[in-house]
Design a protein around this nucleic acid. Structure first.
Length: 692
RNA sequence: GCGAAAGUGGCGGAACUGGUAGACGCGCUAGACUUAGGAUCUAGUGCCGCAAGGCGUGGGGGUUCGAGUCCCCCCUUUCGCACCA
């Protein structure tokens, strides 16, 4: 039924459509996934690999008994098990079944079965409890390897759209065949055993035995008996090829990409249909084909097809009256290469200048949701390879690094009388309409139907864009889902207020030029400077190398806390050196904050009396010397357990460190009657004493 | 069923190559300031215990001087694929 008109039944129709031959690139799409390792999340690579679904096997022809000129071609990845085949099974849509029905040889049972199955759509057929159902066709096939006579069945679990739409059932070595053959009483002969198998191979199996490796051997298979499985597969495929009844074959799950759409908005497919010349491409000088601006959307059919001026053209080849193709392309076509157009958006002649694309692309860092893992991100890889083969690009992989960001989630609430209610409608744990406590659902992707949403505009109105942004960056690493939290947003606002206050407290004192060489820093001022330079370092690497914005924000919070501590220490008696240290910290903080909270950062920068804007200022550099600690707190372990801590100079040698540890009173007390067997010194990090 | 990712305080999360588990924030506790504050500042906050101390990264084994991190088995959760022969 139509989802918009409940009384309108939807029918399937055959349409002539345009396809992109993905299968031609399937091998490369799969193999070059290996180059993406490290830059792309493993799960995206795995999802694409499964989606492409390459499987190597063989096609084998079985003659039909009594009809010498007819064969059934099956696809198998396990030709080594062909002596274990006890039936052939065809998809209900298989041509041979249709033929049987047509020439009246089909039983009533078979006819009914096929009718029933074809009434159920493929997707639903799998959903129907997956019960395997089948019917014997009355025919037999001859196994080309041993001339065994096998019954031909049809069954719902054999897919018409994969392989040849026909299989050989080897119940002993395939779970599905086992289930089916057990149900219908077909024989289950074993032809594979583990190398260390000791029992009786004629004993009935309780489940299918399916390993495919050289730890298994072929048995009961004539001249092939005794061969390891991989060897048997190769040899038996070669045998089939040599005798003309088989061939090696690779199949893919991925299908060619149907790009035709019958909607008005989209890129027109640039072909013309001519009665004499057939399908003719629109000549290059007439490209691109533009959509007409005066479409009639009230017309009955597709608006483009109804538009006479668009449809009626002359054939580019013979000049006769012809008809323009009225399909438009899938929007995935556009998203497959938009970023290449970005680098040369005004080009009138080409999609983009290859030289410009060579300079700017491939994309260094791409960000998108996981929902694009197998559609957009396969299509764009495919499109890049096609453009490479057209000479537009010099590479086949468009995206070096991929980040799949998480979604914003929230718990949902359901009231017994008011159904789903918004989080804002829960007051003190009760539904605001009826004061009943609602059921708290799981934390999940925000959705309108479950009302577990927050309105971003509303949040921005309350907290400001900077705060909302900062909270989202702080709450979790970008690839993880993020639970929206109003308390968390308030925490972000509080932090920005803290930054604002401490800067405003100091900005009139630090707003002048200092002569650094004349300054004497106190320990506290040196500590603040150290924190400043450590923070610059951390934030820089967290952004640039690790993409961990949450830890970058944490580092800036630490610097702010340090500023407050310093402020409390110096009170109003700040020396020029103190002011310099604060000025250095504030400047760094504002610059580091700018990518996270651009608006407030500009305001603060202006408050420091700067003419330039912070976005065009230079990213701060850190001084490794100043970032270095001058004292270290070294943990001391005894037999690997924490025993004490010693404070030592930063540049201590291993021997001095060991001596300092042994001189420590707490360590000595714990060592009283023990003997040190071994001492492990991790330079400047840890000392572990092994004692007995 | 197959495949992937993940399990760390009351909560969100830190811990980069095996080296002080719990950074930072939320929440909570106490104090200060205040007419008041859900503002702000200061201190505390993994668990058990008065303490000394003990226990702690889903559970169980292992490797190692040392394991949240590495290896094996199991459990749970989330996601993807789901009769692809």
């Amino acid at each position: 039924m139509c989802w918009r008109h409940e009384d309108v039944r939807v029918r399937q129709r055959q349409l002539e459509q345009w396809f992109v031959r993905v299968t031609k690139y399937a091998d490369e799409l799969l193999d070059s996934l290996n180059d993406q390792k490290g830059g792309w999340p493993d799960r995206v690579i795995t999802m694409q690999r499964n989606w492409i679904g390459r499987s190597k096997g063989a096609e084998v022809d079985f003659k039909i008994d009594g009809e010498a000129d007819k064969t059934i071609r099956i696809f198998t990845t396990r030709i080594d098990t062909i002596y274990g085949a006890s039936s052939l099974i065809l998809a209900p849509e298989h041509a041979l079944i249709a033929e049987l029905i047509e020439c009246g040889k089909a039983s009533d049972e078979l006819k009914t079965f096929v009718e029933q199955q074809s009434a159920i759509e493929a997707a639903d057929r799998m959903a129907e409890g997956k019960e395997k159902l089948g019917v014997f066709t009355g025919m037999y096939a001859i196994n080309p390897f041993n001339q065994a006579k096998l019954p031909i069945w049809t069954a719902n679990f054999v897919l018409t759209s994969y392989g040849t739409g026909a299989i050989m059932a080897v119940p002993a070595h395939d779970e599905r065949d086992f289930e089916f053959s057990s149900k219908y009483g077909l024989p289950i002969p074993r032809v594979i055993v583990a190398n260390d198998f000791k029992g009786d191979a004629n004993e009935p199996l309780t489940e299918a035995f399916t390993p495919k490796d050289d730890k298994c051997t072929v048995i009961n298979s004539g001249e092939w008996s005794g061969k390891p499985v991989p060897e048997a597969i190769a040899a038996m495929t070669a045998h089939a090829e040599a005798n003309g009844f088989g061939t090696s074959q690779t199949n893919f799950k991925i299908r060619d990409w149907g790009i035709s759409r019958q909607r008005a908005w989209g890129t027109p497919i640039p072909f013309v249909h001519c009665a004499k010349c057939g399908i003719v491409p629109v000549p290059e000088d007439q490209l691109p084909v533009a959509l007409p601006k005066d479409l009639d959307f009230a017309s009955k059919g597709a608006p483009l097809a109804e538009h006479e001026g668009f449809v009626n053209v002359t054939c580019p080849t013979c000049g006769a009256a012809a008809r323009r193709d009225t399909d438009t392309m899938d929007t995935f076509v556009d998203s497959s290469w938009y970023y290449f157009r970005y680098v040369d958006p005004k080009n009138e002649k080409l999609p983009f200048d290859p030289a410009i694309a060579a300079y700017w692309t491939p994309v260094d860092q791409y960000i998108g949701g996981i929902e694009h893992a197998v559609l957009h991100l396969i299509y764009t890889r495919l499109w890049t390879k096609i453009m490479r083969d057209l000479g537009l690009l010099t590479f086949g992989e468009p995206v070096k690094k991929l980040l799949t960001q998480g979604m914003v989630t929230l718990a949902s609430y359901r009231c017994a009388t008011h159904d789903w209610i918004y989080p804002t409608e829960v007051i003190d744990g009760k539904c605001k309409f009826c004061s009943q406590p609602p059921t708290v659902g799981r934390i999940e992707k925000m959705s309108k139907s479950k009302k577990n949403t927050v309105d971003p505009d509303e949040m921005i109105r309350i907290y400001g864009a900077d705060t909302v942004r900062l909270f989202m960056l702080f709450a979790a690493p970008p690839e993880k889902d993020l639970e929206w939290s109003e308390a968390g947003a308030e925490g972000a606002a509080r932090f920005l207020n803290r930054v604002w206050r401490i800067i405003y407290k100091w900005n009139d004192r630090v707003n002048f030029k200092f002569e650094i060489q004349n300054l004497e820093f106190t320990d506290a001022a040196r500590a603040l400077r150290r924190k400043t330079h450590q923070t610059i370092k951390r934030v820089t690497t967290d952004i640039a190398e690790r993409m961990n914005f949450n830890t970058a924000v944490a580092a800036m919070m630490e610097l702010t806390n340090e500023l407050y501590a310093f402020d409390a220490t110096v009170k109003d008696a700040a020396t020029d050196a103190d002011k310099f240290a604060v000025k250095e910290a504030i400047e760094a903080l504002v610059k580091l904050l700018a990518p996270f909270t651009p608006h407030i950062a500009e305001e603060l920068w202006a408050s420091l009396g700067r003419d330039e804007v912070v976005v065009s200022s230079r990213w701060p550099a850190y001084d490794a010397e100043l970032a270095k600690a001058d004292e270290l707190e070294i943990p001391v372990q005894i037999n690997g357990k924490m025993a004490a801590k010693v404070i030592v100079a930063a540049e201590i040698s291993d021997d001095d460190l060991k001596a300092a540890v042994l001189a420590d009173a707490k360590v000595q007390a714990k060592l009283a009657d023990k003997q040190i067997v071994k001492t492990i010194v991790v330079p400047k990090r840890l000392v572990n004493l092994v004692v007995k």
